[in-house]
Design a protein around this nucleic acid. Structure first.
Lengths: 214, 214, 214, 214
DNA sequence: AATGAATGAGAATTCATTCAT
DNA sequence: TATGAATGAATTCTCATTCAT
């Protein structure tokens, strides 16, 4: 039986996970049937249970795979002695936005999952992820404060809520954003490029005013 | 025929809508069965189809009812000659937060719906709502600019994304927020009071830096 | 929801249970699909889950209903002062055979279930039933011994195994019995009448030799 | 093509048949999946179809193999001039019990199969087996009658039903038997030894009274 | 000879809705 | 108006078997 704990995925399995990711993002977990997934992935219906055991376990596999790549990897940056703390904060913004933009679908799925307040298979993973990220950002902020670059009274959770919430809102509602701002003719790539730049500048400006003395 | 166009709802209907609101928020539209709703509402299973026609029409009714109360009502404030534009912006923040906090469930539902990029029954309503709100805020900003209070280069959509996204993120992930920041012992009301105050100050500070010259 | 604990069954429910009883007896629990049952009962497929919750719960309901009527009701006979102990033993034989013949299908189901040595939903009920019956028979035997009618060294479990096993063997393999003894032309009723008489005499003869001094 | 007609079985095939025998006995044919068998046997899933063609053909192979060894081999005993007919009847009892005890699993399978009154692959084999056995026993009884040892009015089928039914009942319900008679602490072997002795004496006593004049 | 991968058919169950009253 | 009963369609998952190697 090919049920997987930690292993390389076969091409078929990756096809399935990518199809699932897309559909879960669009229609939600419950709104997506395994038949939908099998059709989107171009594989036999039974393969999904065969490979992943169940629809829920497929979701878990997805979370385990994507969850790893979405964690913030600030360690190296944090140890960089050349960068100012503000530069590092800017790095955080760009790094975070990069990840979200690249993993838009998975991000949508996670956003949905976060709303459920009954504990599901993903709850624990999301918690770990959030905790890890908050600690890293806290470290960054503390360093800036120690160096005298940053203000003393900084609410890290709210700071992160602003970073994550604003980005998430743009990403998850981009369809409306484009329609409302007459950007429907832009290609997806072009739009992404533009919005990334604007949003990056916007958030940097916000961060600067929240973190520094001037 | 009891299908409703625009009409007062009976007590039973309100019970159903409230039950649906709660469950849709928690588990999503597809994750909630009409049986779940009938049980939560304490009404007969067949009543839901009987009163609302279908599960989808129930969702629409919910949107029509709650959607109205969630639109920003800034008109009177905009015409107030006594308030500075910044004060009005602050009013906007508090007003928006008030609505979200009071209608948390419905807000979650809307957040979920916004992610779906296939057009559903709610798409149009959400679009109208967003459009209306953006226009009102644009008006507020333009007035501030005309009066010289506000900067010239203000990106209204991004400003709103910050307001909405940050608030939404706090509201939809409050469970994790509390766990991560050791606030699990607080009562829901107490937590809401605290977070509202903190978030209000936070957003006002952000808005001030984004909007004004100093 | 019409899930039942102890309640009168509707006509539909009885239809379903009777169809299930017949098919479980013929083809076994796993060899019978709910579709088979729905077709045999002439009801909609979904009705079975609707009424009984699941195929397994249907089996349980069947056991609870039939299990009651298959318990030996010897109480009144045991208290009869007019009958000799041997007469009572004969009464036991006829009473047991009556029940088995009348509930042949259920008896087959129980025979199958008894073979499974993993504990299922029916295990407990079967145990209780067997215990109760063994106690009653023990009582009957002890009484005969006290009165000096019966031998001292009587192995009650083996005695019952002979009664039950022999009857069960005839009932469950009657198809082969008839074929092997050229009784295929007899009507079911006629065959049952004949075999009941023969078996009754046979068992009475066996019991007499095992129980009494002569 | 590795499908077998009459042939020695390889080690793998024997593993499979033994696993199947155990599981069919416990859970029935339909309650056992080929995956269950492959796991129990420790062989590849596909090997079962590969070696036996299908699950059903595996069952047939099992019957052909085990069926041979379960037939009563009374021929030599019948020709023995030294033994009394009663001794031969006693020999029959011990011989039958030996076989059943040694092939408990297969016996359970056969018991289940006998209940099905739709003709399956095993029906014919079972019929032949039963016919052969009945003839042999009839011969034994007739001989005893001719010699004046046995009564005239002996119902051979009922006699066999008593032998087979009683033994089968003990074997197939031994789990309950032990629980009901506080023999759960005995090892399987010890229990088997005890029950065999007791049952043998019991049946011999019954046979004696049924067959002889005193 | 042996097997991992794959699959169509069918399993049980749940679903939203409708019917009969 | 209100509801218990009923149902067709769709759900997820498992099954025995076969294919490609």
């Amino acid at each position: 039986m090919p049920f997987i704990f930690k292993m390389e995925y076969s091409e078929k399995q990756i096809q399935i996970m990518e199809a699932a990711e897309k559909l879960f993002a669009e229609k939600g977990f419950d709104g997506t049937s395994v038949r939908d997934i099998s059709e989107e992935a171009g594989v036999n219906l039974a393969m999904i249970s065969y490979y992943f055991g169940s629809k829920e376990k497929l979701m878990e596999s997805l979370f385990l795979t994507r969850g790893q790549s979405i964690t913030l990897q600030l360690e190296s940056m944090l140890q960089n002695k050349e960068m100012s703390s503000l530069q590092k904060a800017y790095g955080l913004i760009d790094s975070y936005m990069d990840k979200i933009m690249r993993l838009q679908c998975f991000h949508k799925i996670m956003s949905r999952e976060q709303m459920a307040n009954v504990k599901g298979a993903t709850t624990k993973l999301i918690h770990q992820l959030k905790k890890k990220n908050q600690e890293l950002v806290q470290q960054l902020i503390s360093e800036g404060q120690k160096k005298g670059e940053f203000r003393k009274n900084i609410d890290v959770p709210l700071l992160m809520a602003t970073l994550i919430g604003t980005t998430a809102h743009i990403v998850t509602t981009q369809h409306y954003y484009r329609k409302l701002n007459n950007l429907e003719d832009l290609s997806d790539d072009e739009f992404e490029k533009q919005i990334k730049k604007k949003l990056s500048n916007h958030l940097k400006s916000v961060f600067k005013s929240l973190l520094t003395y001037e």
